[in-house]
Design a protein around this nucleic acid. Structure first.
Length: 422
RNA sequence: GGAGAAAUGGCAGAGUGGUCGAAUGCGGCAGUCUUGAAAACUGUUGAGGGUCACACCUCCGGGGGUUCGAAUCCCUCUUUCUCCGCCA
């Protein structure tokens, strides 16, 4: 959520930057400013009414004390009127504030100046590419075939137990999953991130805090009996650690990492791109989250990108980094880099990580602040990224490391798996 | 799941209808003293809205109510603690 004073002071810039997202925000921004003015003037009226009412109440108290009961009772009539007035004003204030909030919820984050124009993934800018695309043997297969051939992932069993998109990992497949999680967590903690184990269900306030609610409600599994939501990413519980928090400047930067399963309804997805591990309702992911001083957040973003790069290089997977264009950058993000691994057998790029700087957009909703050098509370910047998402990494490994006789395990993982090949 | 108790500022902890945004202690910050530090002493120290700045308003777990007036009374939700039950 953008800050109203920021919108007020930078109206033209906000509109211009939002136009990169292909949004004509002029009307929306005007409405916000008008509503905010109305909110403030209603608040002022209400405050004055309450002030008068407060002072009369005090007077009544004093009159009662000195035994002037009749005078006191006379004043009560006056406060009755004020009470009515303040009630109406409160209602007005609430509706105005709600409408304002609704508008603000509709406005995405302002893209960073380096974000390229564009509407779709074709306009994303490749900023880095590395790794060798292996030349596979004749008859190389996509991972869903390999999974069946080596009996390491059972999609049909998942269908039986739960439904589509809930695969069952077996034997070496399960062990490889566990190895990847442990390896990622080790890399992240070695880079200074503190490991967390987080709840997999969150309440409504947390969903609102990171922006899944109220808009993207349909994307989360909802446990209605207890009004809890299954997390779509560790970002939700991880970032909500800091909801309604005032940190000390010296606490920054904060870096945390955690492994969680992620649950996504993926309503509306279909087709070839959802085959195998490409798109699932439940998958595993190791996330990194940072809370940064506003002057340091882009430095932090770079270091996160370098960190993920390091992991992909150790895994020796061919990958590229994209700077997402404005149209492809998620609602809350100011700047996002996507990492994609090349799947040789599928002959396509698979997104394995998305690293974003949200600047104050999330912090504003979360009320995540720190006490700055002047002793004032200031919104912090939040960032997060996958480090990394398991299924497509697994797909990438299976497909790129396949040989005619099996699947080699990347060397860095062998101490975790306890075997060299499948 | 049942019975009972509780939730107050960074922490501890007073406050059961009016002058309480809130005693006191600890902690934090600033100063005095000191070569420096500690101790001692003095001052200061929650958040949000609003204003050029004041004023002013709101917040004593969340929401609602009673009252001219609520931290204080009532309802409700959440959380914590104690006891019982169940349980990995």
């Amino acid at each position: 959520m953008l800050q109203v004073p920021f919108i007020r002071d930078n109206k033209a810039v906000v509109i211009e930057r939002l136009s990169k997202r292909n949004i004509d925000a002029a009307k929306l921004i005007d409405d916000v400013i008008v509503l905010d003015e109305k909110r403030r003037s209603t608040q002022a009226d209400l405050d004055n009414t309450l002030a008068e009412s407060n002072s009369i109440s005090k007077e009544i108290g004093n009159l009662f004390k000195s035994g002037k009961v009749e005078e006191a009772n006379a004043l009560k009539a006056k406060t009755g009127e004020l009470k009515e007035a303040s009630k109406t004003l409160t209602e007005q204030l609430n509706t105005t504030a709600e409408s304002l909030q609704e508008l603000l919820f509709q406005i995405p984050n302002v893209p960073h100046e380096s974000v390229p124009d564009g509407n779709s993934e074709e306009d994303n800018e490749e900023v880095f590419k590395a790794g060798e695309v292996p030349s596979l043997h004749e008859g190389a297969q996509p991972h869903w075939e390999l999974a069946k051939k080596y009996d390491i992932i059972d999609f049909e069993l998942g269908n039986k137990i739960t439904g589509a998109g809930f695969p069952v990992y077996k034997g070496k497949g399960a062990r490889l999953q566990r190895a990847l999680i442990a390896y990622f967590l080790d890399k992240n903690t070695a880079a200074g991130y503190t490991e967390y184990q987080l709840p997999h269900l969150v309440n409504e306030a947390s969903g609102i805090g990171t922006g899944q609610l109220p808009d993207k409600e349909g994307q989360m599994y909802h446990v209605t009996e207890d009004n809890l939501y299954l997390i779509p990413t560790a970002e939700v519980p991880g970032t909500n650690i800091f909801r309604n928090t005032v940190l000390n400047e010296a606490d920054l930067p904060i870096g945390i990492t955690g492994y969680t399963p992620c649950f996504r309804r993926e309503a509306g997805s279909y087709g070839a791109h959802v085959r195998g591990l490409n798109r699932l309702h439940q998958f595993d992911k190791v996330e990194i989250i940072r809370v940064e001083h506003p002057t340091k957040s882009y430095e932090a973003l770079d270091s996160m990108v370098n960190h993920v790069k390091g992991i992909l290089e150790e895994l020796k997977l061919p990958y590229r980094i994209l700077r997402l264009c404005a149209g492809d950058t998620s609602f809350a993000s100011a700047l996002t880099y996507d990492f994609e691994v090349f799947s040789t057998a599928q002959d396509r790029w698979l997104e394995v990580s998305s690293v974003s700087n949200f600047e104050t957009f999330q912090a504003n909703r979360l009320k995540l602040r720190f006490k700055n050098a002047n002793g004032k509370n200031e919104l912090a910047h939040t960032l997060n990224g996958s480090s990394l998402a398991l299924p497509r990494i697994l797909a990438g490994i299976l497909e790129n490391y396949q040989t005619e006789t099996g699947i080699d395990i990347p060397e860095v993982l062998r101490s975790y798996t306890g075997f060299d090949s499948i």
